[in-house]
Simulated assay, not measured.
Amino acid sequence: MKKSNFKQLVSLSLSASLFVGVFGTVVMAQTDSSKESTETETVIKDEEHFSPLAEYLNTAMDLFTEEFPDAELIEIDIELEKEGHYDIQLTGQDSQHEYELDYDTEKEKVIERETDRENDNERALPLDDLLSIDEINEIALTEAGFGEITEWTLDWDNDEDDDEGQALVCWDIKIEDKDSNREVALEIAALTGDILSIEHDD
């Protein structure tokens, strides 16, 4: 697995004005998109302006690559632990083993690592082709129209097929609004940003 593949996932960013507090605090919904197109095009060209969450994910991926240089990522799980901090778990595999690395952004270190001698032979994530996590967040929050993102999972969904009948790699996103006790779960195609499903729990 090449480190450059990991960079693709987090190298693009959306304008900071799309999010209030961005990921340094919580990921909040933004409904005013009148300037979205122009601002997004401008910032996407500058790869140094991406969110704190994207930076954390980039760091976790670098650490995973250092520890397991021959492994390819098969799943990414992120949880918002508290304001501005996340638990990032990366799962990967090589030809023989499966690996997990758990990165705590508050402690800024790996808090757990595991090696499983058995390999489920799952498909590697196509990191070079994915939309950035910032783009996925903007899509999710625009669709929900409220709340903060508290959970992210990226993996292959064998229940969802593309136009050619192939399995899709998808983000499962959970958004919560603690004040109104509303929740919404979305499934988003990671390559195109299409909303595959949305479930409200009011």
Rank of each mutant, 00 (worst) to 15 (best):
E75F: 01
V110R: 09
P52R: 15
G92Q: 05
V169T: 13
T115K: 10
A29Q: 06
A167N: 12
D177L: 00
E151V: 00
D159E: 14
T65Q: 11
D104S: 10
L131D: 03
L154C: 11
L90C: 06
I149Y: 03
L154F: 07
Q96F: 07
H200R: 07
H49V: 13
A71C: 06
L130I: 05
D201Y: 02
H85M: 04
F64H: 09
E187H: 00
L73S: 03
N5E: 15
N119A: 03
D87W: 00
D194A: 15
D87E: 08
I44F: 08
S132N: 07
R117T: 13
D177G: 00
T150D: 13
A16C: 03
E67T: 12
S95F: 06
E199S: 09
K35L: 12
L191T: 14
Q89W: 00
E114T: 14
K45N: 09
V110I: 13
E41L: 09
E83D: 12
Q8T: 04
L154A: 10
R123L: 13
K2G: 08
W156Y: 15
E112Q: 11
D163L: 01
E75Y: 01
E108V: 03
L125E: 00
V22K: 12
W171Y: 15
V27Q: 08
D70H: 07
L80I: 04
E39L: 13
L57K: 02
T115D: 06
P69Y: 05
T142C: 01
S17D: 06
H97T: 08
E118A: 11
D162G: 09
L168S: 07
A16W: 08
D77K: 13
T42Y: 14
Y56K: 13
D162H: 02
D102I: 01
I78S: 05
S34V: 10
D116M: 08
N5K: 12
S33E: 12
H85Q: 08
L101W: 02
I198V: 08
T59L: 11
D194N: 15
E48N: 14
L141C: 05
Y56N: 13
F6G: 06
A54M: 02
E106H: 06
D172G: 06
D155Y: 05
A16V: 07
Q30C: 03
D62W: 05
S37N: 03
T38D: 07
N181Q: 14
S17R: 12
E143P: 00
W156T: 15
L154W: 12
D87N: 11
T142I: 01
D172P: 01
S180K: 13
D155V: 10
E67A: 08
Q96S: 12
D177F: 00
G145K: 05
A190P: 03
T91G: 01
N181D: 10
D134E: 06
I133H: 10
N137D: 02
N5D: 14
